[in-house]
Design a protein around this nucleic acid. Structure first.
Length: 619
DNA sequence: CAGCAGGGGGCGC
DNA sequence: CGCCCCCTGCTGC
């Protein structure tokens, strides 16, 4: 297929990719970071690295997909400038913990085949620092960085037989696959990901991390009688109680994510994998979560029956694209043996769980699931068409309709966002400006008033640095974990002075996220009274009142309240009747304190008590 | 401004 | 595990 010309072009493109990534590395990590790149590049791209056999067989690590700049990103970087070297992550500010040992510790023994200690670990910052160029980042990133930049190994090889292409960067091989073989890079992701060198490197760093964290924990335990024995899932990256994010049981080794729930952790890990086990069986778009397939399906193919049993990717690939599927599954099977062999090591090693074998799972034969008719929103549920009808969507049927205008959207979130265009809940605290979207208000505040507002409190900073300092000091939020505040103002507050909420008209949209919980904690059960949404929202509101103390319950109830309100709202706005009186128009909100959030979608969080105007809460 | 996708979390089975 | 909701970012108009 490829022929000699294809192979011949491989050599030239090999260097193209190498040069490209060297240039990227140079720009991103500094000149010194390129030392070693290309050195030892074997003729024909042979990887001349040997790994300990015992570790070579361990395939249990999963790595964060390469997040280094792509070739196309390089062009953008060339045009737009490069971040300062030494930082692997954009907008990255190392987290510091004055109460912890903020120092870098390297392994006692170098990684045998690399003849290097690769990186040092800082338990206070939970970051690794490359020993060769002092770049800082998370484990997976530093591992990939070191392997691609400082290692003499070209660890990633083209999986296609007869092709000698190899690179220190997995992405280069992917690019090579696409360019030279016109192959789907994703089909070989597992081969690139299950890389012995990278696995070994990752485990080496993971061991260092575990060792340092353990020592640190022990020191703390010695100093304190508080025992921080953490039960860590056998496949989760172990995090000491002190080292985890907020003491979560499961902490991702590739990013700051941490959770107490194993299922969430497992699901989270999938985002660090390249494969997407699910797909839409109509348009073949791939997803890493089944519920995302469903959401996509209900948005894009509402007139078709949704069948959960058909979203497994292989089920279609094997039938419609035998070659690709063969490569995909074949490789998976090959790796599967190794993965199986490494099962025993999973419990002992602080590693991520093996990739799910869903890709090769045989598709279910029977399609027992009734075609989803729930695609209709509550608004349309009353005239739900027959499930047997292939096209259930009536002409002119509205799903999420606005009561102020003829607009209708595909989901309730679109409706909520659209309603902001009527309500303009984001008001400037310093002038009369109001906006439907937070980022517009942020722009306004920044450009007109030259201020940046804290997303957590009424504080208005003069600049980003002051804001960052405020966030760190007042909210203990390091900028690393902080999405760059859009500078939205805490409407109703100026210069940090809270304004009382004008009677009745309270901050619009104050039920989401932590805000909702705060409301519940404050015992603000008055979230009901949603006009015509009446009964439903009253019930929800009543529930809120008894939710004190349980954040999850509060959130659920506030959400239920919102759903109830939404239900009533939509039902009335479906065009089927006029029984629902739309909430008052924004004039009422003019004098209300407004709370802006980071994005236009988000309803402002509550800063105060009562939430009487129910439609304001959400819409 | 709206559509869409990706990710986190709650909850029920 | 599936479903749902919430939230956010990206993108096109």
């Amino acid at each position: 297929m490829e022929g000699g010309a294809g192979v011949g072009s491989v050599a030239s493109l090999t260097m193209d990719c190498e040069d490209m990534f060297k240039e990227i590395t140079k720009k991103l990590y500094g000149e010194e970071a390129t030392v070693g790149v290309g050195v030892g590049v074997g003729v024909g791209g042979v990887v001349g690295v040997e790994f300990p056999a015992a570790e070579r067989d361990l395939q249990d690590d999963e790595l964060r997909p390469e997040e280094h700049i792509t070739a196309w990103g390089l062009a953008a970087l060339m045009q737009n400038g490069f971040p300062p070297p030494g930082i692997l992550q954009a907008n990255f500010t190392p987290r510091t913990d004055p109460t912890a040992e903020d120092r870098w510790t390297a392994a006692e023994e170098p990684l045998a085949w690399a003849h290097s200690r690769v990186a040092a670990y800082n338990p206070a910052q939970r970051l690794f620092k490359c020993t060769d160029c002092e770049c800082v980042g998370f484990l997976a990133r530093v591992a990939e960085h070191w392997l691609g930049t400082h290692s003499q190994a070209r660890a990633f090889q083209c999986p296609l037989a007869g092709c000698g292409f190899a690179s220190g960067w997995a992405r280069a091989v992917r690019q090579h696959l696409a360019r030279d073989h016109h192959s789907d890079p994703a089909a070989a992701d597992h081969l690139l990901r299950d890389n012995p060198a990278l696995d070994d490197l990752t485990r080496y760093l993971q061991r260092l991390k575990t060792k340092v964290e353990t020592a640190r924990t022990e020191r703390r335990q010695t100093a304190s009688t508080v025992v921080a024995s953490t039960v860590v899932g056998e496949t989760a990256a172990p995090q000491s109680e002190s080292g985890g994010e907020g003491g979560k049981r499961y902490a991702c080794a590739a990013c700051p994510y941490a959770t107490d729930r194993r299922d969430l952790f497992t699901r989270h890990e999938n985002i660090h994998r390249d494969e997407k086990p699910f797909h839409c069986y109509l348009c073949q778009k791939q997803f890493n979560r089944a519920d995302h397939v469903k959401k996509h399906f209900l948005r894009m193919h509402r007139d078709q029956p949704y069948d959960l049993n058909r979203i497994r990717r292989t089920s279609v690939k094997s039938a419609a694209n035998g070659g690709s599927a063969a490569l995909y599954c074949g490789g998976q099977a090959g790796a599967g043996a190794v993965a199986t062999a490494s099962k025993a090591a999973d419990a002992a090693l602080p590693t991520l769980p093996p990739a799910p074998a869903a890709e090769c799972r045989a598709p279910p034969v029977k399609l027992e699931r009734t075609p989803l008719v729930k695609t209709d929103t509550p608004a349309t549920a009353t005239h739900k068409p027959s499930a047997s009808s292939p096209v259930r969507r009536k002409q002119g049927e509205r799903r999420y309709a606005c009561c102020y205008c003829a607009w209708s959207g595909v989901d309730n979130w679109c409706l909520k966002r659209h309603l902001n265009t009527h309500l303009k809940p984001f008001a400037c605290a310093l002038c009369e400006y109001k906006a439907a979207r937070a980022e517009r208000l942020a722009t306004h505040v920044h450009k007109v008033h030259n201020k940046k507002a804290c997303a957590k409190c009424p504080f208005l900073a003069d600049d980003q640095q002051q804001l960052a300092l405020h966030l760190r000091d007042a909210h203990h939020i390091e900028s690393r974990n902080l999405k760059v505040p859009t500078g939205v103002n805490r409407g109703g507050f100026a210069g940090g002075a809270p304004q009382p909420a004008p009677g009745g008209a309270v901050a619009p949209g104050a039920v989401q996220g932590a805000g909702a919980q705060a409301v519940g904690a404050a015992g603000a059960s008055g979230a009901g009274g949603a006009g015509a949404a009446g009964a439903a929202s009253s019930a929800a509101g009543a529930g809120t009142g008894g939710a004190a103390g349980a954040g999850g319950v509060r959130r659920r109830e506030s959400r239920a309240a919102g759903a109830a309100r939404l239900f009533g709202y939509l039902e009335a706005s479906d065009g089927s009747g006029d029984e629902y009186e739309p909430p008052p128009l924004p004039a009422e909100f003019g004098a209300a304190p407004h709370y802006a959030r980071d994005k236009e979608n988000a309803a402002p969080p509550p800063l105060h008590h009562a939430l009487h105007h129910d439609h304001c809460l959400r819409y």
